[in-house]
Nucleic acid binder design. Sequence first.
DNA 1: TCGCGGAGTTCCATATTATGGAACCTTGGT
DNA 2: ACCAAGGTTCCATAATATGGAACTCCGCGA
Lengths: 248, 248
Amino acid sequence: MKTSSGTQAVDRAAQLLVRVVEAGEPQPFTTLLTESGLPKSTTSRLLSALERHGLLRRDHNGAFRPGPVLARYASRSGSADLVATAQPYLERIGEKTGETVNLAVLSGGAVEQIAQVDSSYLLGAMNWVGLRVPLHCSALGKVFLAHGAAELPRGPLERRTPRTVTDRRDLDRELTEIRRRGYGVAREELEPGLIAVAAAVRGGDGAVIAALSVSGPSVRLVPERVTEIGGLLTAEAATLSQVLGAPR
Amino acid sequence: MKTSSGTQAVDRAAQLLVRVVEAGEPQPFTTLLTESGLPKSTTSRLLSALERHGLLRRDHNGAFRPGPVLARYASRSGSADLVATAQPYLERIGEKTGETVNLAVLSGGAVEQIAQVDSSYLLGAMNWVGLRVPLHCSALGKVFLAHGAAELPRGPLERRTPRTVTDRRDLDRELTEIRRRGYGVAREELEPGLIAVAAAVRGGDGAVIAALSVSGPSVRLVPERVTEIGGLLTAEAATLSQVLGAPR
DNA sequence: TCGCGGAGTTCCATATTATGGAACCTTGGT
DNA sequence: ACCAAGGTTCCATAATATGGAACTCCGCGA
């Protein structure tokens, strides 16, 4: 690739990015280092910059893979599919739980619902499709946060109800818990009386591209039912992820 | 986004890239210029660098869209989906025409069928999935050629039947015609008695990534029926392309 | 428990590289 | 033919990226 004048840094960064994106598999730091022939410090700095912007991400081994921005782009190119593919899952979950079921993706720093199956009860059947909710006080949002698919905006966290978690440290603790058990819960944090449970859906590159949720009134979603639904959601989301091509 | 030390150029470039990728629509230079607040010259230089590396591309108006590297990544993440997404279209076409319908992609310089709906007649119901046919004597192949998605191999064009077009100039003339009317036809050029009609399917970056075809025996696919099917295919392929995220 | 080695990050003086204002093209409109 | 808007190229300047070395972190073996 010819290097024109005044773009060395960008050229180098772009080269690294392209290499990671084109390689089918995660690229360890060392591989990128030797193959690019750049000095360690430079490589480290450039990769970190790309990571900051969501163009790259590190998997648990520290190897680099395409980041959330690219995953979102990829899933949007087929996001009509996502709805079609997920529909049977939504319906099955709806049948088993009787509650409102949603599929959501990230869009512009908030959670956007893109498909829904209505509750079979009268209470809780409103249409959420197209609705956008904040990250920190919804089960869906917390799931995206927990998996590093989204980042909290700067500034204070909006208090929607008396139970909204507005302390970042408390929230962090909860995100760790979500990663551990596989599903997220929001209990009257977005709206009084509303409880939701959510689990992550992964796309072809293993990145979290969407999330499934079940929501209903606190009178029906008692703790043991939440646990049961959490398990169901986790399982369904895992199967859907596999159908979408997510690696094991 | 916080700017750490020693990455100004990369940060700015990454910001531009993210903006273009996240925006659903092509971003004109001026928009990027004003929204990023960077000087004209800098913006121009950074965008050109990204373009050089295939991360961005300019459409015919000079507006920026995600480039070939990203498009390739997206289609790789979702090519399993292509079949799933296209299935309903294949079925609808099958119902309306009663003939064999195929979805094909390019693979190693030939056309490969990846999905099929069988004819409702007895004649013409064999399974083509996995079958590879040459570019110059199939309706599918000619469609790929016409849109510049494939190139003819060097050397003489194989004569499969007495009607196979083996002269490159004749073929070129036909490709022009295909671009004009939107669909391609092969009349007993691959196999005696077999006629096929095909139209192009475009993916997220506007490139031709697949094609739809209808094929059947010459006794049923008389000229006026070919015209009718051509129109149908063109319409269905256009809709499918939009679902796959192709620009208008 | 300690120390070793590899992997990655941070530091900081240096000069290479990006910067941006202005001039300069190019294209489409009237 | 002329003008305006939209982009690109130029070039002196200094701000920025650079990369060698020091440093931190972690896992492993003794």
